[in-house]
Structure formats: structure tokens, C-alpha cells
């Protein structure tokens, strides 16, 4: 069964090999996606992150499969 969390990767810096997997997180209850403030609250450093939206959220809220979050 597919996990219900949002998988998050930190985008690679220039010249880096690839993205860094940060883990799986869920947005606060009732929220369809993760915001930059959510990631800040989770302790993510400033930077650009790519987030995979789980199927259940895609179907329910008609979201695209990926989102990008900029933490400033």
C-alpha cells in the first residue's frame, strides 16, 4: 500500500550529484499540501525542496504529482 506522507528532497546545489532525501511528512490536518512555513517549522534549512504528493491527495484535491517549496 502506498504511504500517505509527502516525500521531500532537497534540491541539489550546483554541481552536486543529486537530490537529498529528507524524509516523509504530512501537512497539518485539513491542509492539502505543505507550505514553506511547514518545512521551516520542521527545522528545514533555507533552500529549495521538491515534494512528491501522495496519490490520495492528488485524487482528492486534484493536485499535480510534484510541488516545489522554497524555504527562505
Amino acid at each position: 500500500m502506498e504511504s500517505q506522507g509527502f516525500k521531500i528532497w532537497r534540491n541539489p546545489a550546483s554541481g552536486a550529484e543529486g537530490p537529498t532525501y529528507m524524509g516523509e511528512f504530512c501537512p497539518p490536518k485539513g491542509r492539502p499540501c505543505l507550505y514553506a512555513s511547514d518545512l521551516s517549522a520542521l527545522g528545514f534549512a533555507p533552500g529549495c525542496y521538491t515534494v512528491r504528493v501522495p496519490d490520495s491527495f492528488r485524487d482528492l484535491y486534484l493536485l499535480p504529482p510534484w510541488q516545489r517549496v522554497d524555504v527562505r
Binding site: W9, N11, W66, R68
Partner: peptide
């Protein structure tokens, strides 16, 4: 897909 998106071209994902 992840590789293409995390190093996306000029057009931002949004």
C-alpha cells in the same frame, strides 16, 4: 521525474 524537476529548466515547477 524527480531528477528532471529538481534541476528543472527555465520554467519553474509552479
Amino acid at each position: 521525474e524527480l531528477e528532471a524537476l529538481c534541476r528543472s529548466n527555465l520554467k519553474p515547477l509552479e
